[in-house]
């Protein structure tokens, strides 16, 4: 068993919404829990996929575990060291070991700097290498991310989406990280480029022994690159386990809906089924969007199982939000009926 590089326990992150001067002075704030008690761990050189819809808190988890934003409570242990309350100065040397790839292709790329200057800066954040060493490292980085030399003289605005992504990855690799949080690394790219980037990330993992927290809503890609997958719903992990079991034997009704919505889009069989108008029969799965977390199980208002079982009281009992239960082989699920 390889060594645990990141261990997150009962992580919480509340966002407060301030509105104007008066509520600020009066100290009245609206608190929204973006991450509501999440625990997971990453082993060295493995990939954990984090899936869920927008607003479920998956990006916030990524930012919080890297301490780009401070957790409200919980514990984050990186490589055996508790980093939950470290100060900025104490964090700085650790930063180089944990990096983030942002969804936005322009993240970290100063629009007024050429690619060469961007990479040079990244190489000199923690070290003072000689010019010759910098030149060697830049060549090495370009090779690693498969980018042409000629792009070094370009400004970010002159790069295509795929090239921006490669520069962004090279910039992160420059500090030689061990853990990378990849937040929707492909969602801003064209389909044909997405495949290139997914292959690149897997290559880099193999050669550099990287560990990934792979945040994405693209289920097939997550299933492909991850050993473990965690499914989030409104700030909580509702199911977590090996990628194969999450994909093929999902237990939580929400995970099933996620996967079936993918299957709906893919398979022509369901297509014909829909054409006959039969989809309408699945009414309860149909029309709803973001809702406030209900008391009890937060998924109950959208849950087909809750409807099928005749709305059992345990699902909406404020005292019993279903905890994550182990159902064997490291597969955990938060549902009273799974």
């Amino acid at each position: 068993m390889s060594h645990t590089i990141l261990d997150v326990t009962d992580l919480r992150k509340d966002y407060s919404q301030r509105r104007g001067l008066i509520p600020m002075l009066a100290g009245r704030e609206r608190v929204i829990p973006a991450v509501d008690g999440v625990s997971f761990y990453l082993r060295e050189n493995e990939t954990v996929g984090l899936v869920g819809e927008s607003g479920c808190g998956k990006t916030t988890i990524g930012r919080t575990v890297l301490r780009l934003t401070d957790p409200s409570s919980g514990r984050i242990v990186f490589d055996g060291r508790d980093i939950t309350r470290l100060s900025r100065a104490e964090l700085r040397p650790l930063r180089r070991e944990m990096q983030m790839i942002f969804q936005d292709l322009d993240a970290g790329l100063n629009p007024k700097m050429r690619v060469h200057a961007i990479l040079r800066e990244a190489l000199t954040v923690y070290e003072r290498p000689s010019d010759a060493e910098i030149a060697r490292r830049i060549r090495e980085l370009l090779e690693q991310v498969n980018l042409k030399d000629s792009k070094l003289a370009n400004f970010p605005s002159q790069l295509s989406g795929g090239e921006k992504r490669r520069v962004g990855i090279a910039r992160v690799l420059a500090v030689r990280p061990r853990l990378i949080v990849a937040d929707e690394p492909t969602s801003a790219l064209d389909v044909s480029i997405q495949a290139q980037v997914v292959n690149l990330l897997r290559d880099l993992q193999k050669h550099l022994g990287l560990t990934y927290l792979f945040i994405s809503h693209d289920l097939p890609v997550v299933e492909l690159v991850s050993q473990k997958v965690a499914v989030m719903y409104l700030g909580r992990i509702v199911e977590m386990g090996l990628a194969e079991s999450i994909a093929h034997q999902p237990l939580h009704p929400y995970t099933r809906i996620l996967w079936s919505s993918l299957a709906d889009k893919r398979s022509t069989e369901v297509n014909l089924y829909a054409r006959s108008g039969a989809t309408a029969a699945r009414g309860t799965w149909g029309v709803f969007d973001f809702e406030q977390p209900a008391s009890g199980c937060r998924f109950a208002p959208r849950c087909p199982l809750y409807q099928d079982k005749g709305r059992p009281a345990v699902c909406t009992d404020p005292a019993s939000e279903p905890p994550l239960r182990d159902v064997g082989k490291g597969h955990v699920v938060a549902c009273h009926f799974a």
Binding site: F102, Q103, D104, D106, A107, L109
Partner: peptide
């Protein structure tokens, strides 16, 4: 908006570099 500043912090650039070099000087 483009997460530029957050990415600079994530890389480990100190705040004064971000402010003086990236924000004031370049932009």
């Amino acid at each position: 908006q483009t997460n530029f500043i957050e990415a600079a912090h994530a890389l480990g650039l100190p705040a004064h570099t971000v402010i003086l070099k990236h924000i004031l000087w370049f932009n």
